[in-house]
Design a protein around this nucleic acid. Sequence first.
DNA 1: TTGTAATGGTGTTTATAAGACACAATTATA
DNA 2: TATAATTGTGTCTTATAAACACCATTACAA
Lengths: 233, 233
Amino acid sequence: MSYYTHSNRILVALDCIIFGFDGEDIKLLLIKRNFEPELGKWSLMGGFLGEDEDLETAAQRILYELTGLKNNYLEQLQTFGSINRDPVERTISVVYYALVNSQQQDINAINAHNAYWISLSEKPNLIFDHNKMVEQARQQLRYKAALHAIGFELLPEQFTIPQLQKLYEAIYNRKLDRRNFSRKIISTGLLLGTGEKDSKSATKKGQLYRLDTTNYQRYLNDYVSFFPELTLS
Amino acid sequence: MSYYTHSNRILVALDCIIFGFDGEDIKLLLIKRNFEPELGKWSLMGGFLGEDEDLETAAQRILYELTGLKNNYLEQLQTFGSINRDPVERTISVVYYALVNSQQQDINAINAHNAYWISLSEKPNLIFDHNKMVEQARQQLRYKAALHAIGFELLPEQFTIPQLQKLYEAIYNRKLDRRNFSRKIISTGLLLGTGEKDSKSATKKGQLYRLDTTNYQRYLNDYVSFFPELTLS
DNA sequence: TTGTAATGGTGTTTATAAGACACAATTATA
DNA sequence: TATAATTGTGTCTTATAAACACCATTACAA
């Protein structure tokens, strides 16, 4: 039972990059730290791995603590382990990124943590190596969204095609042709027209669609080149 | 200096998935364990993270110990952290995968570790969650090779186009059209014809090419859809 | 050494999909 | 109610993928 006795044990943290979308910009949920270390500075939401927790479970817990959300898209990004990345003590951090529909969040939980939705383009400087984490997550989001139909995770259940287009334009920071975009999206068979036009929403323009969940499951596991024209740099 | 006092420290291991290519099959460098735990069973090459080591440094060290190779393609895959993945003690494992040119290895080091090159299709059952790791690495290799020009890392410095094609056919386990393949590869500008035909090699068929390293660097960072026809499942 | 089979190199055709652009219908706003 | 902005559908051109033909070179065995 003691083969590993001479090896050293170290701290394992988790950090969550939480992406949202407000209809115009890709947003990050960031924390203005009201606790030590690095009090007063900006950081990602994080925590330590519990004794009886899987990595994924811990990431879900951290996401839940901050947003009150469960069952979001959550995927491991990478593990960061430079020797001095945390000046307090040697710590490696397993980083996850989440895609959330920012309209379903728990405002109280967010306020309690002193967290704010901030546009990716206005991201403040973050502590430790959190800037690198965000940059890598942004890149991974571009990868994933070009090959898999994950963009929908950032939208409300019902959405218009132009809304979806704005999302992709925000992810890739470039304009797409309206005509070609809708043709391509429709042809995937992923969308189901609801026939309705949302009366509650601010805009009454455009037909509302929702995901065809059957086809969606298929797409999630398949490799589909959604937008070959989008450069992933 | 002591904000993290109540958090628990755990073991951090690293495991390396080492891919090779023998001209026909994708190979894995696996260890028939002559040490505890799980003596006698098959596993990946691994080790523990040292106190003064970055993750990447540790992965390089482990790869070097086994193969005598440095400066190989080495990339972090994912971190595995299920509670009971290691029955000896709670351990999380940061997994890297490497692409090596199996002709340049240090045979003595490999023999000393009781390691063997085994075709992916003949992979034996591995300890712990190493099977899952390999499966995920195989998938990641397919992703990467479809979008980036990393296949060359598995070939000797000089190679023929048919050899390169066989590599891609092995990665994706399907036949490719000979004519279309060479046209596509040539058009990337990645290959430099050497004019020679290798006199030492077993086969004298086909012109020898080598990488145009200038263009290669560009491709490594770019997203390039090498083979849209290849399904990544 | 010579004929035959296998493999390698280059070209052409066809089908499909991307990208650019036009027009009509609907909605928002002054 | 007029006008501008936005949305939905259609067409054309061009680029690229995929299928297939032909000839040259090499390997191997009679």
